[in-house]
Design a protein around this nucleic acid. Structure first.
Length: 109
DNA sequence: TTGCTGACTTGGC
DNA sequence: AGCCAAGCCAGCA
């Protein structure tokens, strides 16, 4: 039996979809929550592999690199990601997202 | 099965 | 601060 439950795509899509508005998670954190501590790269690959329809219903912009870095920097999508996050009220420290304020499990003061 | 790619991460220089 | 190399994971030829 090769079909063991949902594929990686659906798991990533489901988890990313639970990220509250105004908060962000890192690739490594998403991977860890999926039960794959070192699957950060796989998560990025999954998000990249989403269909256009999936992109529309999944808040992919709420997933950033370690330390709040924008991995998409240097690519057109990177600017869009930053714009979307700012629209949600996410603060930036230079070129990085303020994880201390918008982290997944960080309580805002 | 092997090898390559990629929206990653960490450590060293 | 920025660049390079190694490690890790999933999918595909």
């Amino acid at each position: 039996m090769t079909a063991d439950g949902p594929g990686f795509f659906e798991r990533v899509r489901e988890l990313v979809g639970t990220i509250p508005r105004g908060r962000v998670a890192t690739y490594g954190q998403v991977a860890a929550l999926l039960g794959v501590p070192r699957g950060a790269r796989a998560v990025g690959w999954a998000l990249r592999a989403f269909d256009e329809a999936a992109h529309a219903r999944v808040p992919w912009h709420r997933v950033v690199g370690a330390g709040g870095r924008i991995s998409l920097r240097g690519r057109p999508a990177g600017e869009e990601q930053v714009a979307r996050l700012r629209r949600e009220g996410v603060r930036f420290s230079g070129d990085r997202v303020d994880l201390a304020r918008h982290g997944l499990f960080v309580s805002r003061s």
